[in-house]
Write a protein that binds this DNA or RNA. Structure first.
Lengths: 329, 329
DNA sequence: ACGAATAATGTAATCGTTTTCAATACAAAC
DNA sequence: GTTTGTATTGAAAACGATTACATTATTCGT
């Protein structure tokens, strides 16, 4: 068994209270502190976090629930959250919800049992709007996806504006039959679809939005069948990095050239998007900022629980690359 | 404050021991169990894990320390570990070491403080061989990278064989000046370099291995400068997915065609590797199996601590794609 | 030189569970 | 009818730390 504080106290010849103070930041004479540290080193003592948390009623831990750990967007955000948490002396429990409502509920319950001091959370499906913050002891900051304003704090992209920008870019490059592929299980997908539609309607162009589960395989299947239909699009946009991957794969397997046969644009500046063909045009999200800001928002909420709920909206930037080169008549 | 077991007991009109038993699997009459469940539901009671762990001396938790969360190899492994842990009624604490020895030490210390029952771990640098399992209370299973046999349990790829296979494939396709780019901070990089070298030496071909930090930017810089040197390679291999990304980027930015100017092959069948050019030739690792087996190995070790240490070696499979098409004379 | 203030230390209560142990009730066996 | 055994249940002792409070030693002002 590992050494306990009692053993350290005995070896150092002091009381356990003194050991506790020496390890924390209580007032201890240099002399005793020295002896305690010696004893700690000699025994390889490590405090038991369960005991510490139970007594101090403070977990120093935040939960981070991401929708899909395979999506580079979320790994980038999680690094930022982790860095920020670490700076603030907190730990992060990273949970992969896997776009599964049951896992989501399970992990939220776990967060309660862990008595985390807060949760950063990208809600699945309509949990975004149905979420009941009052049923949890801890404050929640939503990222990427958010419910109605005032529900919880949130850090999100201006999805509508970004999608609109993307479509306008395609229109400007001469494309007219622009299809949109969106995730069917997040507010993000819906908002991006709205921006897509608005841009097309403004120009009197036809709208063709399709909604699929947000993973690579679903996108491949959807795009493949789409391409066999009459009047196929001359351009496509995909509403996140995974759908974009699937779209590229489907186009390649169908022997289509980009942008010759179909132009392509999407979301998330994942590294590979610069490597495909002449590069894919994407909206780059400020991923690291999103994570950092979410953590800051959570910390300020912990300091001041009575503040009004805040929703921070960030803007993506358009990276125009070869996949949306001007259409050849 | 959230409800405690005492509150549940009071509401149900039973002792706290009975509540504890009703929630666990102790012997409780159907009558009382019903009343307890009602009270739990009514109060929204959730047990305090810190208290439970302190008393039961069992954390039901395993730690997973990955070298770099941005590497899809590790996210795939972590999903497998999580699934397996969940099936076994355990939680996973996922820690991103970020190829940083200090973070690695910090997280190992944290694992001790959390009193995890075991750790799955891809060690950084020469921690693989320097690691002292006896300094930790918990068993360790190393993945991807491993120290000398007998040190700890491990699940790894047959790296030497895989790299050898890759080089032989290139030789078979007509390439002769084959450069190798390897991670400089893992046993994996060294083993793959050894296989690379063995294959070349066997054919009397020149060896040109370079070692860089295992991230995209380092690979970009290394390859760019490499290409400006005289007698540049006609083929390259990259020892993991991130280095492969960087290599592709450097080649593209230098205006080189693949495989026309330089053929390319690497490790890890990340989704994007199928999308670049005519596809990149890679060694596919059984990522999900690696995670699952690591967890199984850990569980069996927990059941039977005295077993001899086991090292499980898996084989990758070569996916030949366009990036290594036969060399044009 | 004395009393008050201040600083360092120790004693013991406490956090919310699980679990040991004793107590009770009731049926079966003699 | 007493004894023995078998379930349930409750009372109370842990688990390993932090921290409120009491105590002692030290310093300082007068």
């Amino acid at each position: 068994m590992s050494a306990k504080i009692k053993d350290v106290a005995a070896l150092a010849g002091v009381s356990i209270a003194t050991v506790s103070r020496a390890l924390g930041n209580g007032p201890v004479s240099a002399d005793l502190r020295e002896r305690v540290e010696q004893a700690v080193a000699q025994l390889g003592y490590r405090p038991n976090l369960a005991a510490r948390r139970l007594r101090s009623q403070h977990s120093q831990t935040v939960g981070l629930l991401v929708s899909d750990i395979r999506n580079p967007f979320f790994t980038a955000v999680s690094r930022a959250v982790e860095d920020a948490a670490y700076r603030a002396g907190m730990r992060v429990i990273l949970c992969n919800v896997d776009e599964d409502v049951k896992k989501e509920a399970m992990y939220l319950r776990l967060m309660q049992e862990e008595r985390v001091c807060g949760v950063i959370f990208s809600p699945t499906g309509d949990t975004a709007s149905r979420f009941r913050p009052d049923r949890f002891e801890f404050p929640v900051v939503m990222i990427d996806r958010a419910g109605p304003p005032g529900l919880t704090d949130a850090v999100v992209l201006d999805n509508k504006q970004a999608a609109q920008q993307l479509v306008e870019h395609l229109i400007g490059r001469g494309y007219r039959r622009i299809g949109g592929l969106f995730g069917n299980s997040s507010t993000t997908g819906a908002e991006r679809a709205a921006g897509y539609e608005a841009a097309l309607v403004a120009q009197g162009l036809p709208v063709a939005a399709r909604f699929v589960p947000p993973n690579v395989d679903a996108a491949v299947a959807a795009v493949k069948s789409w391409l066999t239909e009459p009047d196929r699009p001359d351009a496509l946009i995909a509403s996140n990095g995974l759908l974009l991957q699937g779209t590229v794969r489907a186009l390649m397997e169908a022997g289509m050239s980009i942008p010759g046969d179909v132009a392509l644009a999407g979301f998330d500046n994942d590294v590979w998007t610069g490597l495909v063909g002449h590069g894919l045009t994407v909206i780059e999200q400020p991923v690291y900022d999103i994570g950092t800001l979410a953590m800051e928002m959570l910390l300020s909420r912990l300091e001041n629980p009575s503040l009004a709920k805040r929703k921070m909206v960030l803007n993506g930037i358009l990276l125009a690359r070869g996949s949306t080169a001007a259409k050849q008549a």
